[in-house]
Design a protein around this nucleic acid. Sequence first.
DNA 1: GACAATGTAACGAACGTTCGGTAATATGTC
DNA 2: GACATATTACCGAACGTTCGTTACATTGTC
Lengths: 190, 190
Amino acid sequence: MAQQTNENSTLIEALFDIFRNHGYEGTTISLLSEITGLQKSSLYHHFPKGKEDMLRAVVKFVSAQIQQHIIAPLLDTQVKPEKRFSNMIKTVKAFYSDGGKNCLLNVLNLGEAKADIKKRQSDDYNAWLNALIQLGEEVGLSQPEAINWAERFIIIVEGALIIQRLTSNKQTFEKHMEQEQKQFQQFLKS
Amino acid sequence: MAQQTNENSTLIEALFDIFRNHGYEGTTISLLSEITGLQKSSLYHHFPKGKEDMLRAVVKFVSAQIQQHIIAPLLDTQVKPEKRFSNMIKTVKAFYSDGGKNCLLNVLNLGEAKADIKKRQSDDYNAWLNALIQLGEEVGLSQPEAINWAERFIIIVEGALIIQRLTSNKQTFEKHMEQEQKQFQQFLKS
DNA sequence: GACAATGTAACGAACGTTCGGTAATATGTC
DNA sequence: GACATATTACCGAACGTTCGTTACATTGTC
């Protein structure tokens, strides 16, 4: 299975874009069909178990993206902590289109999501959190300090996305990311 | 109109609870009927224009609640700033059931919300923001500092709600609210 | 000719909504 | 106070539409 990761991933990316912007209930098969250019039945050929399977594939895809482009670079001790953090900020900004796109972690957890999806999402969060904690400790924070800083950083990412969406102020997200950048540089000086 | 605010508001509160936990698309008339104990057609008697009207009534209700219980007390200069802030924290914690309930500002802005609803929501946000800014300036922050602090405070409220929901850790929200409390007390000492 | 990928057409179920009519409650009149 | 009359609140049953899903036919590829 999954030999043509290339073409398949652009399909999944299209699905991802819909799910993150409309939520699960707000995403209809008709809409997915429109966007992907595939007929409904073609979508069902790729995802025999239907809508929930499509979401599952998206979440799995995103999970891999996060692992590869956020977690792994954060833990790469061959790169200087400062560089690792600024790289992450860059990746995160791109991932959310400078705050123009929503976060699946937020969007999906309304109502009742299936257990395995919830689990993967909370695993993703924890992986990100732990990588940040490790980085924090690396630059001299105590463990409690690092935990608190890491948690707050992700909170600010999620919160800033909401506020930017709410106010249509396209600089909100970037502004607060830069602020986190400066905050991190303060750690290096002490 | 609106003489029996009492009974009518409990109905709206029930609708509010559903909308905030399921989002707009995730909320079905059948569900609203179940929760309120009213038949669908009875709901349409109260809200002739249907689901969207129900949401509109909820948003209006919440808007008034915010004005009355959050904004107005924040601006009441007869009370000491420290007390005003801690009162707000208390109100906010109750409003979100210690982080167990979602924020409409987050939940509704998926997909396409109607313009008047979006406007009311962003007005609510701005009212809250401005009240906080004024309080910040009152305790000695410069205007840019106050703006930044206020914005970040609301961001943390929204972000902490998401993370608490994601991790099912019931102390996340409270923890970060206490942290904001301490932060504010720092302002008073300088 | 096998098999994966796409298309056409339809399915039952659930959606939001509407209609006609009944119970309950105010309002007016004597 | 008694009684007729609006007005409001509620309900059961159905409406047309869209939902997610499936059966079956057609195309392309090796």
